[in-house]
Amino acid sequence: MRYLRSFLTLIGLFLLTTGYGQDDVNKADMADTMRSNGRIYVVVAVVVLILIGLILYLVRLDRKISKMEREKP
């Protein structure tokens, strides 16, 4: 039941995204403004922080499992 609900939420999210982002396709509009004023670094900082947080969580799990392996002969 729990999985079903999160699955339905995911499907709903995809349906939401399908309507957007239909810009002019003829020219490549890159995010040059974002690069020139340096705001892109804010995005990179946020994304890398999330990645590091997830990896620290994995490391903690790894340590815990190692401890359990040592405890049980």
């Binding site: 396709v25 003829n26 995005v43 994304v47 890398v48 990896i55």
Partner: peptide, 29 residues
């Protein structure tokens, strides 16, 4: 290899956002 994984992923996220990419129509960023 876990350390290698972390280093490569952090490199991916930083270089993936900051490095130059080809300017293609429709795809853009």
């Amino acid at each position: 290899w876990k350390i290698l994984c972390v280093v490569l992923l952090i490199y991916t996220f930083i270089a993936g956002f900051l490095m130059d990419v080809p300017r293609l129509p429709a795809l853009s960023e």
